[in-house]
């Protein structure tokens, strides 16, 4: 028999608890990516001489595979005496990788702010910090929320990579079930369906959010 419903229902609770680890990794990773990305984008504008260094750094991170970066962080940190558990190392790697992408999104957001806004802030003698916090960021962030949302979904779909360093997330759990029972069909298919469902739901959410933001910013 190719598909066994009884077996599928039996493994469902195990997979569900592993899905929580995947979602945790997604949320922590994205929080890291979104904040680090913002820092990179702001530093690039606030401290002009870092511009070149940051763009090379971003290019380096974006041009190399996430899997290799995960291995790198997981194996290299212990050499410097910092032992990270697999989950921390993996989430850190994912966060840094997506921070590079997010920083470009923020940059696009900042570039869209009218020059006059910067000039007016200078004219009003606002500090760089106040300018960013009260003038630029509130205007720059809403239009780029959908783009950030897309990266959240992309990041979520990368979490199975954590199975390569044996984090017990969804994929790793499915692999373990598969190797213990020699039945890969049900666990792998369920994992696929789970990702499909989550992606479709989040795509719909992003679309409605986009509509909401468009309505709010149209004056």
């Amino acid at each position: 028999m190719i598909w066994d419903w009884a077996f599928a229902f039996e493994i469902l609770p195990v997979l569900a608890s592993a899905a929580i680890v995947s979602i945790e990794a997604t949320l922590i990773g994205f929080a890291l990516a979104a904040s680090l990305g913002l820092v990179l984008a702001v530093v690039r504008i606030a401290v002009p001489w870092t511009g070149w260094t940051i763009s090379v750094l971003v290019e380096l991170i974006r041009s190399t595979p996430l899997l290799i970066q995960i291995f790198f962080l997981y194996f290299v940190f212990p050499k410097f005496g910092v032992v990270l558990d697999a989950f921390t190392a993996g989430v850190l790697a994912i966060g840094i990788h997506y921070a590079a992408y997010c920083s470009e999104v923020y940059r696009a957001g900042f570039d869209n702010i009218h020059r006059g806004q910067w000039e007016a802030s200078v004219a009003l003698n606002l500090s760089a910090w106040t300018t960013f916090r009260d003038i630029i960021i509130p205007q720059a962030i809403p239009p780029i929320v959908p783009a950030l949302g897309n990266y959240l979904v992309a990041l979520f779909k990368e979490t199975p990579l954590l199975s390569a360093i044996a984090v017990l997330e969804l994929m790793q759990t499915a692999k373990i079930i598969g190797s213990e029972t020699f039945r890969y069909t049900e666990p792998m298919t369920l994992v696929g369906l789970f990702f499909l469902a989550m992606s479709l739901v989040s795509a719909a959410l992003i679309r409605s959010l986009e509509g909401l933001l468009n309505r709010r910013t149209m004056r």
Partner: peptide, 20 residues
Amino acid sequence: IFRGTSALVQLFWLFFVLPQ
């Protein structure tokens, strides 16, 4: 289907499940 699921899941699915 291919945009909604992860590339690694697709790879494993084709590798482990298709033979079944």
